[in-house]
Amino acid sequence: MARPELKRRRIKNVPITEYPGLHHEWRVWDMAVEDFIRRVDPETVRRRDEELRNRWMAVPGTCGRLVKE
């Protein structure tokens, strides 16, 4: 919650470490939720796996260890 909002709602003494941009609490919440949903969403998982397959490859003779191409 931004400081003007705190003032408007007469909330006092809430210590906040400033983060550039308003509503940093929401920003963190949203980022966490978006990330979590991406990790479960089957379509996202499919796209990510495809992208990772293209970006990474297994090295023969390394028990399937993946290294960057």
Partner: peptide, 13 residues
């Protein structure tokens, strides 16, 4: 769905 849809829909988009 401000940040996508969670359970049971799971749609990040």
């Amino acid at each position: 769905a401000f940040t996508g849809l969670g359970a049971p829909h799971w749609d990040a988009y």
